[in-house]
Simulated assay, not measured.
Amino acid sequence: MNKHNILFIGLDTHKEFVEVAYIEDQRGAKPIHLGRQPCSKIAIKKLARQFESKYPGATLHFVYEAGPCGYWIYRFLTSLGHCCYVVAPSLIPKKPGDRVKTDKRDAMMLAKLLKSEDLTPIYVPEPEDEAIRDISRAREVAMKDLKDAKYQLKAMLLRNNITCKIKDNWSTAHLRWLTELVLPHPAQQIVLQEAIQTITERIKRLERLVNELENHVKRWRYYPVVKAVQAMRGVRLLVAAGIVAELGDLNRFDHPRKLMSYVGLVSSEHSSGGKRHQGAITKCGNGRARRLLIEGAHSYRYSANISTELQKRQEGLPKEIIEIAWQAQLRLCRRYQRLIHKGKHYNVVVTAIAREMIAYIWAISREVVLTPVNPKLRLSRVPA
């Protein structure tokens, strides 16, 4: 091998082992299966040294599929000074007629596709960003578990023809009313008490996670972006933190349409010849960020207005960011009413509003500059 050639190495990662294959950067070269290695830092470091000694002067390019094992292999290889790429399994080209799948074939195919530049690497968050994302997802899971427990208790009351006259559900008065219920059978009474206890514990769990998320986000390097995004209507702290934690650095998108496509809010299309057919949204990319945007888009069904809470969130922000948020509110409120009057379905309208919301969030993030030592919120020289 020449001095400045590149060696493409495909890794099929698993919990306990890694299947390794490589291919040289030469015309007509075929992938070579190296074998199976333990999935540990010592083994991967030894593997990299073997390639360096066998191919002196070559640049090592590693690639593996994103999966449940996380990004520790990417971070470890990059810390050693090697190039590493993580690709999404859904974006790997596959032949329709290929019905044989093995770890050996996957590793060889990854190396071959990396050489031919047919793979699209994904964005790998920093460890701090991933930690904020984990606690944001934990809050979302806790909220879902709480809703499931409430639905189970409501279903039990409905089966027994028990109705509550207290309008404020799950308030202190409502929980007190639940504890005073007496069901006809002792076994049902035990189920009722367990359900009440489960709901109480999950409410406290959700409160703890929300409190911890708010405390950690304020010390996060992307907190200036989270604070600036809250200038928009329908985007509070938890929604803003969740969107930024899921999407990461928004400045890596040079156009808002790419960000819309990344969160799966663009229409699918199947056009051929002179016919053009657009279908439902693609729902590709990050589903959690898309759900948060849909949640915030519901607030634009009302007329444009700066509420007291929104004004408090905008205090201390630059004038340019507040103007972008106001322009977004004017446009999205008008667009919502216009689409409703056209007879569009409510879900279609909300999705269209969410698609434009992410464009304004992108524009606001372009106005924020993050300093590495002390993050401050200030105007950027890059126009939105």
Rank of each mutant, 00 (worst) to 15 (best):
R205L: 15
S365G: 02
C84I: 09
F76L: 08
C83D: 09
Q230S: 06
L247M: 04
Q26I: 09
L114M: 06
D148P: 05
T282F: 14
S299F: 02
A304C: 07
K3T: 11
Y223I: 06
R291K: 12
N286T: 08
I122C: 12
A111M: 10
H345W: 05
L158D: 01
C39I: 04
G35D: 05
I135D: 05
A138E: 03
K342S: 11
A280D: 09
I44E: 03
Y85K: 14
V63W: 01
A195R: 02
I306Q: 05
A240L: 14
L310C: 00
A363M: 13
I42F: 12
A155D: 15
R176G: 07
I9S: 10
A228M: 12
M156L: 15
L80Y: 03
G274P: 04
R133H: 13
A352S: 06
K147L: 13
V182D: 11
L213Y: 10
L11S: 08
I196R: 07
R355H: 11
T179G: 07
S267R: 09
L317S: 03
L60V: 09
V191Q: 07
M232Q: 08
R49T: 14
L330W: 01
Q189W: 11
T163I: 08
L7A: 00
G287P: 09
L91P: 03
I358Y: 01
L206K: 01
W326T: 09
I73N: 03
T351D: 07
I6D: 13
H14K: 11
Q37V: 04
G264N: 11
E246L: 00
L339A: 09
N2L: 14
Y85R: 15
R257A: 03
A29K: 09
L192Y: 13
R137I: 12
D254F: 02
K94Q: 15
S299N: 04
C39P: 00
W326P: 03
R159P: 02
I294L: 15
L158R: 00
R338W: 01
D134K: 02
S268Y: 12
Y300N: 08
L157G: 07
A107I: 00
A297M: 08
P186Q: 12
A173F: 08
L379N: 12
R335Q: 01
I199G: 02
L293W: 02
A111T: 04
I162M: 03
A328K: 03
T102K: 13
A48C: 07
H61E: 14
G343N: 08
K275A: 10
Q50W: 15
L91E: 11
K319L: 12
K165G: 03
I294H: 14
V239N: 12
I166K: 10
K144Q: 15
K218R: 15
E130L: 08
A359G: 04
P38D: 01
G57R: 10
K3F: 13
S171F: 02
